[in-house]
Write a protein that binds this DNA or RNA. Structure first.
Length: 300
DNA sequence: TGCCAGGAAGCCG
DNA sequence: CGGCTTCATGGC
């Protein structure tokens, strides 16, 4: 039966390891924006109102994408292809990163151990910013609880084989809700204000991924983001590395990075910000990948 | 139980 | 600009 389903195949680079990506994708049991079973990823996408449910599997030198809900429109197929290419960062050539990392005392073991890990992207700007705000200054386990509640209260869903699959809420939807509705989900008043404010800025066009991607000056991208209430340097750089494809983005104050460095450097205490900054300068042009590989060490 | 968590705003000098 | 305080909530 499934052999009748339409299939899309995307070639992957040589520097690609699907299982390394799965380790990162499987880091929380509360994740509800995709499901993974037997190394197959199922995900619901909504493109211009069209619900598209896909299953992604790794095949020889490729990702094999199956449309479980029938053939989408041609625009839908293009959107799925673009989404998956972004999600697994298939366009980036990692060889220069690996050449740099081979000379680096901290990274050289990491890139051997996790060879082929891609920087997993969150293509939706509203999703990456909301997720970052939820994660500010709280433990990640609770952040996932918040995200699950947020998605299941305001996102669209689609039931397949008795299982409900979710799409992240749109900025248009969240632009219309009030702070109290998020307070009920254990959001602090500030986080609720920040996320609704971001949603309204995106819904009215003041903030868009397209406009940010057009700006080639990374400092100006960061400035544009930090001008928005609730987005500080950490959130801006998080979004730049995981959504806007800025290779030099680096969330300097990130506690996870500090813990990863503490472990790798076998220190008793977390490194000072000045030391983290000095290290990151050596990763010039690849700070985003360096950060992602450092985070990877926390998931085992 | 108390410390801490993938920070940011607000204030002060 | 740089340092300090406050915010708020749950995990472990």
């Amino acid at each position: 039966m499934k052999t009748e389903e339409p299939i899309l195949t995307l070639r992957v680079p040589a520097e690609f390891n699907f299982e390394e990506c799965l380790v990162v994708l499987e880091r929380s049991p509360l994740e509800n924006l995709y499901g993974i079973r037997n190394k197959h990823i199922r995900k619901l996408l909504v493109h211009e109102g069209e619900m598209i449910f896909i299953e992604i599997a790794h095949a020889e030198c490729a990702l094999r994408i199956e449309f479980l809900t029938g053939t989408p429109s041609s625009g839908g197929i293009s959107a799925v292809q673009a989404f998956v290419e972004e999600w697994f960062d298939l366009q980036t050539d990692l060889l220069p990163f690996y050449e740099m990392a081979a000379q680096d005392p901290i990274l050289h073991e990491l890139v051997k151990k996790h060879y082929g890990l891609r920087l997993l992207c969150i293509p939706d700007l509203f999703e990456v910013l909301s997720w970052a705000v939820m994660g500010q200054q709280i433990n990640l386990a609770f952040a996932y609880t918040m995200k699950k509640r947020f998605v299941e209260n305001f996102g669209e869903s689609f039931v397949v084989d008795g299982e409900t699959h979710w799409a992240f809420p749109t900025c248009e939807k969240i632009a219309e809700i009030e702070v109290d509705e998020l307070r009920q989900l254990q959001f602090t008043a500030k986080k609720a204000e920040y996320i609704i404010g971001i949603a309204r800025a995106m819904a009215n066009g003041d903030l868009s991924k397209q406009a940010l991607m057009r700006e080639k000056d990374e400092q100006k991208v960061e400035q544009a983001l930090t001008a928005i209430r609730g987005i500080g340097p950490w959130t801006a750089n998080y979004a730049m590395m995981r959504c806007l494809h800025v290779p030099s983005a680096f969330p300097l104050v990130d506690v996870g990075l500090h813990n990863a460095l503490k472990k790798l450097l076998e220190r008793e205490h977390k490194p000072a910000l000045s030391e983290v900054e000095a290290l990151s300068k050596k990763w010039n042009g690849w700070q985003a990948y360096a950060a992602f590989y450092l985070w990877r060490t926390l998931y085992e």
